[in-house]
């Protein structure tokens, strides 16, 4: 509870060090963000590794879940790229599962949403674009830059088209990271605000018969928003993964 007596919707994004670590003047403390990154990794690994440890031909529940995730990401990937895109499968799969688990675990009351930190989503987006750039240049050399030069454009128009293509390419990591960050941040703030309304209406300074009567309204809205947020959490992870596939496809087949 921050200043002002109400509930601070930003409080949930505060980063608190759990173990202070400051080598060479860098602040590398193990914080609540770090803790939830570890939890996300542990949960995903538990589902995927423990779930598949039985190796049964007729899968159990956890193995079905693991296989479902595998086949879902694999079909998404091969839908965007061809079969040769499967070399990026572990990368896309890890990204999707990390973002999905971060989003979903962040919805648990009292948890911390890793993907509501812009530096995290930015780092993931930069990682994707680095893979695109470095793989594209390593595989196709200067031919990769043909990505920015669409064929069949009249000569006088070419400089503008190339400029637009470059700008759109450079803005990809920005949109990729901001989309995820914004969705997570906004959703959690909205949830907290409506939750705060309920508390303010029932225990606030002006609490009375009238406020008690209307208190269920923001509560209902908060419940509905929670359902929406679950959808958004899954959808944003999917959007992140499929855009990653689209960008990686450029590295694989730079010709327009």
């Amino acid at each position: 509870m921050a200043a002002g007596g109400g509930i601070d919707p930003i409080h949930q994004f505060h980063i608190n060090p759990i173990v202070e670590l400051k080598p060479f003047g860098l602040n590398l403390s193990f914080t609540n963000t770090s803790l939830w990154m570890v939890i996300v990794t542990a949960v995903v690994s538990a589902i995927m590794i423990y779930g598949s440890s039985q190796r049964s031909v007729v899968p159990g529940r956890l193995q079905s879940l693991a296989e479902m995730m595998y086949e879902f990401v694999a079909s998404t990937l091969t839908g965007v790229m061809n079969k040769d895109g499967m070399k990026f499968f572990p990368f896309v799969f890890s990204l999707f599962m990390f973002v999905l688990a971060s989003n979903l675990l962040g919805l648990l009351p009292g948890s911390f949403t890793v993907t509501s930190q812009i530096i995290v989503t930015a780092a993931l987006a930069v990682l994707v674009m680095s893979v695109v750039l470095i793989y594209g240049i390593a595989k196709h050399g200067t031919h990769f830059f043909g990505l920015f030069v669409p064929s069949g454009v009249p000569g006088w128009l070419l400089p503008f088209v190339v400029l637009i293509e470059v700008v759109s390419f450079v803005s990809r990591p920005v949109s990729l990271s901001l989309r995820l960050f914004g969705n997570m941040l906004a959703g959690h703030i909205a949830l907290k605000v409506f939750g705060g309304f309920v508390v303010a209406l029932t225990t606030g300074a002006a609490a009375g018969l009238f406020t008690y009567a209307i208190a269920p309204l923001p509560l209902l809205l908060a419940v509905a928003l929670t359902a929406l947020e679950v959808l958004v959490a899954v959808l944003q992870a999917y959007v992140f993964a499929i855009l990653t596939c689209v960008y990686l496809n450029d590295a694989l087949h730079p010709g327009h």
Binding site: I15, F30, T33, M37, T41, S45, V120, A123
Partner: peptide
């Protein structure tokens, strides 16, 4: 908090990537 977040993201994501690509997938 950027440095700390990046540092731990690198560790956890690398671990996840390694576990997925070498064991699970």
């Amino acid at each position: 908090h950027f440095a700390s977040n990046l540092f731990w993201l690198a560790i956890t994501f690398a671990a996840l990537y390694w576990l997925m690509s070498k064991v699970a997938l």
